[in-house]
């Protein structure tokens, strides 16, 4: 859906992007992970042409974005930023209706869509429809920001550190909401963050950026695998790479045939890290799968998966 081909960009003397090439398949939630100054936000902004690359191409749906009218392009892409940027002089409903208004939707259609979106992001329409942005908490504001981005049902969503300004509890709530929305709508989402945990919580694919270059790209497990690049290792506490790798791997994938009667049960969707922690907690070296009695998980399998 989105493809970067040899993208270069400079800001003054700084090489912000250097020869970045990778693709985001349709329907994926791809996280661009990197520290400050790695170029991740710059890369994101080349997709909706808030940044025009000095060299290289950015393709959206197979077409070069440089050939499209910028405003029309942006109206077809959802955009969420860290500071939310709600319009203080409009109500929540007015904010959400921004792009539909620009596209000329009629009132009935817009209102129906607004209510549906508020439900989708977890806000009660009746309560929030007419509220002013100044009266919203940080988490509520960003939910409205998300709804606003989704208003015209764009196939692609760009998110620039959307949850970084929120406290951890609120952040987790919004990450869950985003996962739900992604699962329900199948949109292509490109999300920028500096938080590895957030990347692991959300990503279907991860692209690691460092100093303007693409350091690694692939599924979380692959990126955290034996070939994990130096920039990524720098983002985690030394010695915890294995643990993070385990957190990216579903426990079901390392299951062996055969029952393990009496062993503690892993809930569905558990990762190998959850499994390890459960083993430590119960003092067991075998686990069973809740809902799948014919399979079990042994410590050896975990050690194999964690092997650097």
């Amino acid at each position: 859906m989105i493809a970067f081909e040899g993208v270069f960009h400079r800001f003054g003397a700084v090489q912000a992007l250097e020869d970045v090439t990778f693709a985001v398949p349709t329907g994926t939630l791809c996280v661009v992970l990197g520290e400050s100054g790695s170029g991740k936000s710059t890369l994101l902004r080349t997709v909706n042409r808030l940044v025009e690359p000095a060299a290289g191409r950015v393709l959206l749906g197979g077409k070069d974005v440089a050939g499209a009218d910028p405003q029309a392009l942006r109206r077809g892409i959802g955009y969420v930023i860290q500071s939310v940027g709600l319009f203080p002089h409009r109500s929540v409903a007015g904010n959400i209706a921004t792009v539909p208004r620009l596209l000329g939707w009629d009132r009935a259609r817009t209102e129906a869509r607004t209510d549906a979106l508020l439900e989708m992001v977890g806000l009660d329409p009746a309560t929030f429809r007419d509220r002013r942005p100044a009266t919203l908490s940080g988490g509520q504001a960003q939910r409205v920001g998300l709804a606003r981005a989704l208003a015209a049902d764009p196939p692609v969503l760009l998110m620039d550190e959307p949850f970084s300004a929120l406290d951890p509890g609120t952040r987790r709530g919004l990450q869950a909401a985003l996962r739900r929305i992604h699962a329900g709508t199948g949109k292509t989402i490109l999300l920028v963050t500096h938080d590895l945990e957030e990347a692991l919580a959300l990503a279907g694919r991860i692209a690691v950026m460092a100093q303007g270059r693409l350091a690694a790209e692939g599924t979380p497990a692959a990126v955290l695998g034996p070939g994990a690049p130096e920039p990524l290792r720098r983002m985690i506490r030394p010695g915890t790479l294995a643990l993070h790798r385990l957190a990216a791997l579903p426990a079901a994938g390392a299951a062996a045939e055969g029952p393990a009667p009496g062993a503690p049960a892993l809930p569905p969707g558990a990762t190998l890290a959850d499994a390890l922690l459960l083993m430590l907690d119960r003092g067991a070296d075998r686990l069973s799968f809740a809902g799948n009695p014919g399979r079990h998980l042994g410590m050896a399998a975990i050690l194999r998966a964690a092997a650097p």
Partner: peptide
């Protein structure tokens, strides 16, 4: 005018 509102406005497709 808050810069965030301006950034969002441009990003959403306003001329």
């Amino acid at each position: 005018v808050p810069p965030a509102a301006l950034d969002a406005a441009t990003g959403l497709g306003m001329s």
